[in-house]
């Protein structure tokens, strides 16, 4: 059993990016932030202007990470995870997209044109916006706050339960898998060597993990039934999640912006 202090929640323990800070962004209603996330993505993909994605990152997403006081975590994720991935997409698209007239560079089978370069950058930056927006959302929104809010708005509580409990139980299963691996190794199971050998070694590991988990599922079902999960009475919520007028204005504003972008896209094409 992992024992950790109450304040620290290492990510691997709960499979969540959430960083607890005091900020305007943290205080926004989860639905508002979810709307913002999707609005950013839609605008990046729909906008007819070439530099929209780059502008969104520079003018909206990066500044918002400071507003949410998660700029360091955001920068870390953007540079260490996202930049290499999107950089790879950029390079691949630039060199291997078919078509393109204006040749800039040619070496053996590699061919770079200004058209594929532009297209590669556009694709990469759109993916950058999409993942960035989600990272920012997840950094500032607690999964249970999101689910509570969506449940209140009519999401079935069973579905919310499945999502939140999965986020929590996967890390637990991972540590259980480690225990089983150690137990089987101590009985002489060889988990190293060639690929085939490793695949074969999986069999005695998966059995106990899967069957053990199935037994646990029944017990957990009993445990949550014992706490009235299927009660037909309308649920109440421990934490009040404020949904202010500002939230509503922001949401409608975002919807308006997306429609505007859609209109511009239709108008210009």
């Amino acid at each position: 059993m992992v024992v950790s202090s109450g304040k620290m929640h290492p990510m691997h323990e709960r499979l969540s990016l959430y960083i607890h800070r005091e900020s305007v962004l943290h205080r926004l209603n989860p639905l508002t932030k979810l709307t913002l996330t999707f609005a950013l993505i839609l605008i990046a993909y729909l906008s007819p202007w070439y530099w929209t994605g780059s502008m969104l990152i520079a003018v909206v997403i990066a500044p918002l990470s400071f507003v949410g006081r998660v700029q360091r975590e955001y920068a870390w994720a953007a540079l260490r995870l996202l930049a290499p991935a999107t950089g790879f997409i950029f390079v691949m698209q630039s060199f291997f997209l078919p078509g393109g007239q204006t040749e800039l560079f040619r070496f053996a089978f590699l061919r770079l044109t200004s058209e594929t370069l532009a297209q590669g950058y556009l694709t990469a930056i759109r993916i950058f916006v999409m993942v960035s927006a989600f990272i920012l959302f997840l950094l500032t929104t607690h999964p249970s706050a999101l689910m509570t809010d969506l449940t209140r708005r009519g999401l079935p509580s069973q579905l919310a339960y499945v999502i939140v409990s999965t986020l929590q139980i996967i890390p637990q299963m991972e540590s259980k898998a480690q225990t089983i691996i150690a137990a089987q190794r101590s009985r002489g199971l060889d988990t190293e060597g060639t690929f085939l050998k490793r695949v074969r070694a999986l069999v005695p590991l998966v059995g106990p993990l899967v069957f053990g988990s199935l037994v646990e599922v029944e017990e957990r079902a009993i445990a949550i039934e014992a706490r009235g999960f299927t009660s037909p009475r309308p649920k109440t919520f421990l934490h009040e999640l404020p949904d202010t007028r500002t939230d509503k204005i922001i949401r409608w504003g975002l919807v308006f912006l997306v429609l505007l972008t859609l209109g511009a896209n239709a108008w210009l094409s």
Binding site: R14, H142, P143, S144, A160, Y161, V164, S165, Q168, I169, R220, A223, I224, A226, R227, G228, F229, S231, R233, P234, K235, T236, F237, L238, H239
Partner: peptide
């Protein structure tokens, strides 16, 4: 442990939320 909650406090309140 329900898995639906992130703190002990919320975990204990889970049953009461269900009962409204």
């Amino acid at each position: 442990i329900s898995g639906a909650k992130y703190t002990v406090y919320e975990e204990i309140a889970f049953g009461l939320e269900n009962l409204g």
